[in-house]
Simulated assay, not measured.
Amino acid sequence: MKKDITYCGYIGIVGRTNVGKSSILNQLIGRKISITSHKSGTTQKNIVGIHTIKQHQCIYIDTPGIEIDRKNLEKNLFQNKYCMQLIIFVINKTKWLQLEDIILQKIKKFFIPIILIINKIDHIKNKTQLLPFINLIHKKHQFLSIIPISAKTGKNINILSNTISNNLPKSKYIFLQNNITIHSKEFIICEIIREKLIRLLNQEIPYLIKVQIERYWINSCGIHCIYAIILSQNIRQKKIIIGKNGNKIKKCYLLAKHDIQKYLNKKIILTLNIKTVKA
């Protein structure tokens, strides 16, 4: 392989809600840029992750989870600014339901090679079910590859990564080699805070909770100072977010601060405020 030859392409990650798409993205990138939770619908918009190693640049698009009543599937998967070279279709263990058939029929129309990922194999108690299931879905489509993985443990992520790299077209890099996402630091920080809220509040408030960075600066000691606002729809929601004796917001603060410092690799001063706005 000549050193001056590079390979680059966009890879869409699709599937129903709560199959682990964001966890797979984070494993492939090697950094946490897409938030995760057991609550379906956590990812609200396309998250772009970039992984460049040696002569390959993979640009991943983590799409919001698809639900049975989702109408504009094509628009959700492929915005005009992205031209996919590969699709990663993620399913949950050995579950293939009506929605998987609907998704497959839609994405087949794009005539883009599809890698089928069977995620959460660490949760499959009877591993003898796996091979017959793979044989069954082989008949549904000529997938580029079918790979059982565990995004939680990282099992077979290297196989997935190699399969993707080996099927990228020759192309110049689109982004700088040290880029890991197109999103701003502020966006990622908001997502980290939102993740903690979703996990802590579970079903108590809608997952469509919003977070905004009002101020972000670096002080004279080199510490990153972040003033974030959590937007609640009413007083009741605000009280739920605060929690009894402020326990919920305190825990959110501690968890978010830890992950933000890890993401930035810098010391931070985090301030969280809750503001009530009209829905």
Rank of each mutant, 00 (worst) to 15 (best):
I24A: 00
I24R: 00
I24N: 00
L25E: 00
N26Q: 03
Q27W: 02
Q27I: 01
Q27R: 11
L28I: 08
I29R: 00
G30M: 05
R31P: 01
R31I: 04
R31N: 10
K32G: 00
K32S: 02
I33N: 00
I33Y: 01
S34D: 00
S34F: 01
I35N: 00
I35T: 01
I35C: 02
T36S: 10
S37C: 14
S37A: 15
S37G: 11
H38A: 13
H38M: 11
K39Q: 09
K39D: 04
K39E: 06
S40W: 05
T42Q: 04
T43W: 02
T43E: 03
N46W: 00
N46E: 01
I50W: 01
I50G: 00
H51S: 15
T52L: 05
I53W: 13
K54C: 07
K54T: 15
K54A: 14
K54G: 07
K54Q: 15
Q55D: 14
Q55Y: 09
Q55L: 08
H56M: 11
H56Q: 15
H56S: 15
Q57M: 06
Q57S: 09
Q57C: 06
C58S: 15
I59V: 07
Y60E: 05
Y60M: 09
D62P: 01
D62I: 05
T63Q: 03
T63M: 05
T63S: 09
P64K: 06
G65F: 05
G65E: 02
I66F: 08
I66E: 03
E67L: 13
E67Q: 15
E67T: 15
I68S: 08
I68D: 07
I68F: 10
R70F: 14
K71R: 07
K71V: 09
N72Q: 09
L73G: 09
E74Y: 14
E74Q: 15
E74T: 14
F78N: 12
Q79F: 14
N80Y: 04
K81R: 14
K81G: 09
Y82A: 01
Y82F: 09
Y82E: 07
Y82D: 03
C83E: 15
M84W: 13
M84K: 12
M84F: 15
Q85H: 12
L86K: 10
V90F: 13
K93Y: 08
K95W: 10
W96G: 07
L97H: 11
L97I: 12
L97G: 09
L97D: 10
Q98Y: 10
L99S: 06
L99G: 06
E100Q: 08
D101I: 05
I102T: 10
I103V: 10
I103W: 07
I103C: 04
I103A: 03
Q105T: 10
Q105I: 10
I107Y: 06
K108T: 14
K108C: 13
K109G: 09
F111E: 10
I112A: 08
P113V: 08
P113S: 05
I114A: 11
I114N: 04
I114K: 07
I115S: 04
L116P: 03
I117W: 12
I117Y: 13
I117T: 11
